[in-house]
């Protein structure tokens, strides 16, 4: 298992290196050598390509792991930040800061968005507890509806205040605007991912349900609160820096679960690596498919993710049937 993970990490690094040389401006190893460290190619590499590649990797890792946490805590395979009102709430929070305190530093914006995301997700879980659930698919449907309502509020307010364009930037994930100095907040999301890994066993136990968790001596409430905190913060940082990447947190953990199960301590490294890889692949695809123009990664993930998701659903039915 360790050797295969190492291999995957090496592949991820190789993809990251390739990503550095994919884009409109010509950056090639030959030009880098010819122009030296002060040349325009190196500048482009350091200011744009490298930050962009790092941002994609960090976001891919963090969203994937956040998806797993949500699936464990909501005890449902089909929950992730964009199917539980989390991302939409973060977006609403961001709009609130834009309106009330437009000059606030980005960290404050992120924290307010995280607060909204936390409240929105808590509301979602509270609704889940009230509604009798007859099917596993009811849960994400409820989340999508809640997200739709919150999004409608955001859109209405943004329309009234002429901020629709900014809102679009948060809801459609896109890494083309990532430059040095404008993505570093994503390291916070990475730190939270590492934290999730350290607490992995607690999340797995919590995923067995409140009764089993309590019987095993786990403070279910506290773990739930910690998980929601991580998910809300990750979602908020991603929304603030690059915009939401819908369904990503659903596809990656499910793919890993099919291969090796949900034991979080073992699954999280794989989700992180596979998440980084998949998002980087989608981002590179978006860069070359209509060269020299770009297609936002959110759109690519939407297509790829939807296809993978459908495949997952059909496979699942084949197993049950």
């Amino acid at each position: 298992m360790g050797a295969r993970l190492l291999l995957a990490v090496l592949l991820l690094l190789a993809m990251a290196v390739v990503s550095l040389f994919v884009g409109v401006g010509t950056v090639t190893p030959a030009r880098l050598l010819a122009e030296g460290p002060e040349g325009p190619a190196m500048q482009l590499l350091l200011v744009s390509r490298l930050p962009r590649t790092i941002a994609v990797l960090l976001a891919g890792m963090a969203i994937g792991v956040a998806g797993l946490l949500m699936q464990l805590l909501a005890r449902n395979r089909f929950v992730e930040p964009s199917t539980a009102g989390t991302a939409e709430s973060a977006s609403l929070g961001l709009l609130a800061v834009m309106v009330l305190a437009p000059e606030a530093p980005i960290l404050v914006k992120m924290l307010v968005a995280a607060g909204f995301a936390l409240a929105g997700t808590a509301l979602f879980l509270a609704i889940l507890r009230q509604v009798p659930l007859r099917s596993v698919l009811m849960v994400p449907l409820l989340g999508l509806m809640l997200g739709g309502v919150i999004e409608a509020v955001t859109t209405f307010l943004a329309y009234r205040m002429d901020l629709l364009q900014s809102v679009n930037a948060w809801t459609a994930g896109d890494f083309s605007g990532v430059l040095e100095g404008r993505y570093e907040l994503l390291w916070v999301a990475f730190a939270l991912t590492v934290l999730a890994w350290f607490a992995a066993d607690r999340f797995t136990v919590a995923g067995m349900g409140e009764d089993v968790a309590t019987s095993l001596g786990l403070d279910h409430r506290r773990v739930l609160a910690m998980g929601l905190f991580i998910v809300a913060m990750v979602t908020a940082t991603v929304v603030v820096t690059v915009g939401m990447v819908p369904f990503f947190g659903l596809v990656v953990p499910n793919l890993v679960a099919m291969a090796m199960g949900d034991h979080a301590r073992r699954a999280i490294p794989w989700i992180a690596v596979l998440g980084g890889m998949l998002l980087l692949a989608c981002d590179m695809l978006g860069r070359v498919i209509r060269f020299p123009y770009e297609i936002p990664v959110g759109t690519i993930v939407g297509v790829v993710g939807a296809a993978l998701f459908l495949a997952l659903l059909f496979r699942r039915q084949a197993r049950l049937g």
């Binding site: 699936q71 464990l72 005890r75 449902n76 395979r77 596993v136 797995t204 995923g207 067995m208 349900g209 009764d211 089993v212 309590t214 019987s215 095993l216 001596g217 786990l218 403070d219 679960a257 099919m258 199960g261 949900d262 034991h263």
Partner: peptide, 26 residues
């Protein structure tokens, strides 16, 4: 504290539905 009690008393309720994919050994 729950952790103290968990070393003395365990319970298994009925209808143990587990959405997470775990092996029996896990």
């Amino acid at each position: 504290p729950g952790a103290v009690l968990a070393k003395r008393l365990s319970i298994l309720r009925q209808d143990n539905h587990l959405p997470a994919r775990l092996t029996v050994r896990d």
